[in-house]
Design a protein around this nucleic acid. Structure first.
Length: 231
DNA sequence: GCGACAG
DNA sequence: ATCTTGTCGC
């Protein structure tokens, strides 16, 4: 693969990302979480998208897609590896969320095109990047209390909020994906917290993708009528 | 040249 | 990301 060409594509595509609020709702009705994982030694890429009602945060729908992996993981080029599977899961949804949380960075990326921004642009949806680790930029040390935050700075730009969502946990990196300003991004993420380090949409997407126990209880409760058309 | 480096 | 058991601390 031609890294030079991909790098140029990122710079060009990043120019189309909308970094401010550009959505109609005052309060969202549906917020989704997206998660990507790998199976069979990495040969298969699996994407999961979970839709939650807002503000109750109850799971209302989920979709899982599996496709053959096309690219290896290379820091800075994550979106090219993950978006095909995300698009496949997205196309299966019967309804669109108002907001989508994507695992990984948005504009807090060397060329300002993390997976949250790239995917948001592809489906023209408001997205927020929720990353667990830093990719680029610097920030002042955070105090220990839950709620502590500091701006992530890179080359004079404020790219994300480094936010300690829970005491004794490493902070999260909340950034603009597409069509959601940095402050709003943090705001909506904060509205989706329920006592864990990660927001509910992200946790559900992960639970659904890895068939976690909490998800299995939900699956049980819905009576498994359409066990087959779910993936 | 050396270290950093989302998932 | 994924492979994987127990274990230390609140």
């Amino acid at each position: 693969m031609d890294m030079t060409a991909l790098r140029a594509e990122q710079v060009a595509t990043a120019g189309k990302v909308i970094r401010h609020d550009d959505y109609a709702f005052t309060s969202p009705t549906i917020i989704a979480g997206a998660d990507v994982g790998f199976e069979q030694g990495g040969e298969v890429t699996r994407a999961a998208i979970a839709l939650l009602r807002f503000p109750t945060l109850e799971l209302i729908e989920y979709r899982i897609a599996r496709i053959n992996t096309t690219m290896p993981y290379i820091p800075g080029f994550l979106s090219f590896r993950e978006y095909p599977a995300l698009l496949a899961a997205w196309d299966q949804l019967t309804q669109r969320p108002d907001l989508l949380f994507v695992d990984g960075h948005g504009i807090s990326h060397p060329r300002r095109l993390g997976v949250a921004s790239h995917f948001g642009l592809l489906v023209d949806q408001p997205t927020i990047g929720v990353a667990k680790r830093r990719l680029c930029g610097r920030f002042e040390p955070l105090s220990d209390e839950a709620g502590a935050k500091a701006p992530l700075m890179d080359k004079g730009e404020r790219l994300a909020w480094v936010w300690r969502s829970k005491i004794r946990c490493n902070p999260l990196f909340i950034s603009t994906g597409h069509r959601v300003g940095m402050d709003s991004a943090l705001h909506w993420v904060q509205q989706c917290m329920r006592g864990y380090r990660l927001p509910e949409p992200t946790r559900w997407a992960d639970a659904v993708a890895s068939n976690r126990t909490a998800f299995q209880r939900w699956e049980q409760g819905r009576g498994e009528p359409d066990f087959f058309d779910l993936e």
